[in-house]
């Protein structure tokens, strides 16, 4: 393995997985700390990466520091493996590691994502790395970083709760779509990154390790497997996911996935498609169902 790393470095003059071992060690250490304190934002030190913002440098640094030669990587952006961002990130990793990549959620050992969690249930052997633009769930009610840190330390969350109260009073319901705040392990309120409400319940008591990386703010946080993650809700005003009742995917017919609304300019018609393209593809090829049956038979 060491030989391989040395080889790849020789190839292009890069260290394995681009960033140097010192920097990886820092990220790994902070990732372990984040796993040990579910939902707590751990600051980490890093040199600036020669990668533009909006590329998900936070998530990328985590992924690069975790990858080993045997890992199989999947990169998705807003549910899609084929978007420019996803392709570029995947190319960068392949270039600097020569590891295998996949479009298949099941095959991947590490998935880096932005804005979505795959529809297919992930397993204990997998890690999902989420890119986070704004890690602080309390920012909407408190502009000062110093103060939000104290609020977390003291579990002083009433301001955010009042924000939700005001939302309901003013608009008849909570208007937060993506980035719906959730309480992790009965201790820290966390920003789950801009995933839709649809994906938030997937964080709760999952088999998979979720890691969150914010590049600009240099924060890592984590939800270890089997951790309680409860979206903030009132006893008489429960958290609800997006409502797609009566709708289905125009491609695979799915009625149980998160759908993107597509507006066809030529026909002037609205259609809906699975946001998770791999999920949609697999349903189309029937692969998902067959594998599902095989599992059930066991």
């Amino acid at each position: 393995m060491i030989k391989q790393i040395v080889d790849s470095r020789k190839d292009k003059g890069y260290n394995f997985a681009f960033i140097d071992e010192q920097a990886k060690r820092e990220i790994r250490r902070k990732t372990l700390k984040a796993v040990a304190i579910p939902g707590y934002q751990v600051p980490f030190g890093s040199r600036e990466l020669p990668i533009a913002r909006g590329w998900g440098t936070g998530g990328l640094q985590i992924t690069l520091s975790l990858l080993g030669p045997d890992d199989v990587l999947k990169v998705i952006d807003q549910g899609c493996d084929g978007s420019v961002n996803a392709v570029n990130l995947r190319n960068l990793v392949v270039e600097t590691t020569k590891i295998a990549t996949t479009l298949d959620t099941e095959e991947a050992t590490i998935i880096q994502t932005r804005h979505r969690i795959p529809e297919e249930k992930m397993t204990g052997g997998q890690i999902l790395v989420l890119q986070v633009p704004y890690p602080e769930a309390l920012r909407i009610v408190e502009p000062s970083e110093a103060k939000t840190r104290v609020m977390h330390a003291e579990m002083d969350y009433s301001k955010l709760w009042v924000y939700l109260y005001e939302d309901i009073v003013r608009w008849g319901g909570i208007t937060i779509g993506a980035r719906y705040p959730a309480m992790v392990n009965k201790r820290y309120i966390m920003d789950p990154s801009p995933i839709p409400r649809w994906d938030v319940p997937k964080l709760h008591m999952a088999d998979t390790l979720y890691l969150f990386g914010a590049g600009r703010e240099k924060r890592i946080y984590a939800i270890p497997p089997h951790t309680e993650v409860i979206p903030l809700e009132f006893e008489d005003h429960k958290f609800r996911v997006e409502d797609f009742s009566g709708l289905s995917c125009g491609r695979c017919g799915s009625t149980s996935s998160f759908l993107d609304e597509i507006f066809d300019d030529s026909s002037g018609q609205k259609t809906y498609l699975c946001s998770d393209t791999n999920y949609c593809d697999r349903r189309l090829t029937g692969l998902a169902q067959r594998k599902g049956n095989a599992r059930n038979d066991r």
């Binding site: 009433s158 009042v162 109260y165 005001e166 009073v169 003013r170 809700e233 009132f234 008489d236």
Partner: peptide, 22 residues
């Protein structure tokens, strides 16, 4: 914040998470 929200803030610190009760 609305004046109800101001009162609610205190109640929420006492772990009252029932909108109707608040």
């Amino acid at each position: 914040f609305s004046c109800g929200g101001n009162v609610a803030e205190k109640l929420l610190t006492a772990d009252c998470y029932h909108l109707g009760k608040i």
